[in-house]
């Protein structure tokens, strides 16, 4: 397959996944802001969402104040923000358009219809008025696109690059979400075991569609360390770091049949740390330190994938 085609496929998937995760963050932030007696002020509630996307500098330059309306505008509709939902959806569709011959007709029509529909539903008024409806729409479009991809795409390398993009992005997003939330919540958990604690942690689970799974697995009170375990080490939790690397590693094994050993090595190493890791050790190291290191190593793997397959420098041909 053309390297450029692989590049577009990979980034198409990454941007769709990014849009979905951004919607999840926005949705849960909005939900928490509706809780009575929230122990944070408005800025305290909304700032973490911007923090997760690692875009505080740009936000403070354009908006300044962390109000609900500002954060929603910035994360959902502001094209100046490269991580906003609109930017991610637009880029996903542009990548798809550049390779519409390489994906199935249904996939192209689906992503194109998404972009057309976006313009009819995503007015500033309607998004600010009902952010939850908008976030649901983004999530369901992402589900739809993944469904049409799984249902119609030939199982060749193109399919592998799409999945690779999805899981590389998801691993990064889950790690960031957990890192920011964990960091913010723990110091303020004065009322450990209290009602607010329950809502905060359940909100995190809800944001990665894992509340039901948590209850099924532990059937116990929601404890912060169990939440962390679920999102880091549980291989059967579809958005956990372990589950993402469970997908990435075999994909790379298939793609690296003749070259790209460094990709394989980096992925294998990262996978092993999750596959054989123990939560006690991670907490000893410090969850924040562990997640920061994960984000960096995942990024390094992404760069290696980029150099090996997607933008091959001339010197290597």
């Amino acid at each position: 397959m053309l390297s450029r085609t692989a590049d577009h496929l990979y980034w198409m998937a990454r941007y769709i996944e990014r849009a979905e995760n951004m919607a999840r963050v926005l949705d849960v932030t909005n939900y928490m802001s509706l809780m009575p007696n929230a122990f944070h002020n408005e800025a305290g509630q909304w700032r973490p969402a911007v923090l997760i996307a690692d875009t505080t500098t740009a936000f403070e330059e354009y908006y300044g104040e962390y109000s609900a309306a500002n954060v929603i505008r910035f994360l959902a509709l502001d094209e100046r923000n490269p991580s906003s939902i609109v930017s991610a959806l637009k880029r996903a569709r542009e990548n798809a358009r550049a390779i519409r011959a390489a994906i199935s007709t249904e996939m192209w029509e689906n992503i194109n219809a998404m972009w057309i529909e976006f313009h009819s539903i995503a007015s500033e008024n309607s998004v600010l008025d009902k952010p939850e409806e908008f976030c649901d729409w983004v999530k369901s479009r992402s589900h739809l696109f993944r469904g049409v991809t799984y249902g119609t795409m030939l199982r060749d390398d193109a399919f592998n690059f799409v999945r690779l993009g999805t899981f590389m992005e998801r691993a990064d997003n889950t790690a960031r979400l957990l890192d920011v939330k964990y960091h913010l919540l723990l110091p303020s958990a004065a009322e450990v075991g209290g009602a607010m604690d329950y809502y905060e942690w359940s909100a995190i689970l809800r944001s990665v569609s894992a509340l039901g799974s948590y209850q099924k697995i532990f059937s116990d009170a929601i404890e912060s360390w169990r939440v962390a375990e679920l999102l880091v080490l549980r291989h059967d939790m579809p958005r956990s770091l372990h589950a993402c690397l469970d997908e990435v590693t075999p994909i790379l094994e298939q793609l690296c049949s003749t070259r790209g050993w460094e990709c394989l090595r980096l992925a294998g190493e990262l996978h092993a740390s999750l596959h054989y890791g123990r939560m006690e050790n991670i907490f000893q190291q410090g969850l924040h330190e562990f997640l920061q290191e994960f984000i960096e190593r995942n990024y390094a793997l992404g760069s290696e994938i980029q150099h090996t397959f997607l933008n091959v420098p001339d010197s290597t041909v």
């Binding site: 397959m1 450029r4 085609t5 793609l255 003749t258 397959f309 997607l310 041909v317």
Partner: peptide, 24 residues
Amino acid sequence: IELVEGQDLFVKGNAVFMRTTEGP
């Protein structure tokens, strides 16, 4: 068939190649 842009192709010797994920 592949839909290529100029940047996907290069010349080496008396032949034209495309850059693919499995090499030229």
